[in-house]
Computed example of a mutant assay.
Amino acid sequence: MKIDGSCALVTGAGSGLGEATARLLAGLGARVGVFDLNAEAAARVAADIGGLALTGDVTDETAAGAAMTAAEAAFGPLRILVNCAGIGTASRIVGRDGPMPLAAFERVIRVNLVGTFNMMRLAAARMAAAEALDDGARGVIVNTASVAAFDGQIGQAAYAASKGGIVSLALPAAREFARSGIRVNTIAPGIFLTPLLHTLPQEAQQSLAASIPYPSRLGDPAEFADAVRFFVENQYANGEVLRLDGAVRLAPR
């Protein structure tokens, strides 16, 4: 799908992988809705790229729908959705203080998996109702999983489960939306230098980088954004899950 001139909505676009994606798409001519729970961060990125700042929770049907309506009012039919919003938590299923609180597990599943599904279902309905482009395409959805979906570490039960669900969504969604000309793909990033990792001591960052076979460094969010670009532009890429991880395989702990 042609990026230039297309309306795109990126969740979690106020920082990290989402911000890098919003910036790259805008640089390629997309008109970008910057959707984030942090209003200040969304406004900052939107101002930089000439996009539209949108604030809301990806799990909130009303807020998500309002964001899409605003983006379409400003930029035309929604053609590209990139889901980057997500949270993580570190907790053993059974720790020193007993079982992991069920509410903590549910929160991660709700934000990462339910939030992704919510945005995807609402966007797909709008895309399917839009006029098809010359090649029959109507839209592209790119979701964000994690290598934890495959190599979940001790303490990552909730996070790995949520990302595993996103991986499993790719194929059935792609098959269902095929008749409408909507493609669905997923990126499973490894260890990227996001704002969370920036808070770690330099020694800890170097240790993480050393665990990656090649290149032995943390991933650059711009590399994630470039993978998004590939999935948007390559019309034959559909129903796929791409590990973007420098060949790392996470150890048990």
Rank of each mutant, 00 (worst) to 15 (best):
A222R: 01
Y159E: 01
G14T: 10
A149V: 06
G12Q: 02
E131A: 14
G219C: 05
V140T: 11
R249Y: 08
L197R: 12
Y214D: 05
Q153K: 13
N38F: 11
F105I: 13
A20R: 15
A70T: 14
A39T: 02
T21C: 03
D60V: 06
L113D: 12
A161M: 03
V94I: 09
N238M: 09
R92T: 13
R179I: 15
P195C: 04
V108W: 08
G18W: 07
D60P: 11
A74W: 15
N238H: 14
A22V: 04
Q156W: 14
V142H: 00
S207N: 08
L250S: 07
V114K: 08
F150T: 02
V111P: 04
G33F: 00
S216N: 12
I154L: 15
Q235Y: 00
F75N: 14
K2R: 11
R229K: 13
P215C: 00
A64V: 15
R23Q: 08
G136R: 02
A132E: 00
G152K: 05
Q205E: 11
I93M: 12
V142A: 01
L196A: 04
A222L: 00
A26D: 08
P172N: 05
I49S: 11
C7A: 07
R243G: 07
F105E: 09
E233Q: 04
G155M: 10
T144S: 06
R31T: 07
A73C: 15
T69M: 05
I80L: 08
A170Q: 02
Q153L: 13
T199V: 10
G239N: 11
A160Y: 00
E203M: 13
R110I: 06
V10A: 04
L193N: 01
G51A: 03
G155N: 14
I109Y: 11
Q202A: 08
N83H: 01
A53Y: 06
L196I: 09
A178L: 11
A247P: 13
A63E: 14
G29D: 01
I182R: 10
L78V: 06
T199D: 13
A66R: 15
Q202N: 10
G139Q: 03
A149G: 06
G29M: 02
A178M: 10
G115S: 03
R44Y: 01
D57E: 06
A157M: 12
S180E: 15
S146W: 15
G152S: 08
A39F: 14
R107H: 12
I182N: 14
G14F: 00
G155T: 07
A178S: 10
P252T: 09
V248D: 03
T186M: 01
S207C: 05
D97M: 06
L171G: 00
L242G: 06
F231E: 07
V241W: 04
G152P: 05
A174M: 02
G115H: 02
G12F: 07
G155K: 15
A148R: 11
Q206V: 10
L122T: 05
A71W: 15
E223D: 13
A8C: 09
A64R: 10
S216V: 15
R23N: 09
R179G: 14
V167N: 10
E61N: 07
V32D: 11
L242M: 12
R138N: 13
G181Y: 02
M127W: 01
R183D: 06
Y159F: 03
L193D: 04
T55V: 14
D134C: 09
D4S: 09
R243W: 00
L17A: 02
R217T: 07
T59E: 03
A128N: 05
L122A: 06
A173T: 09
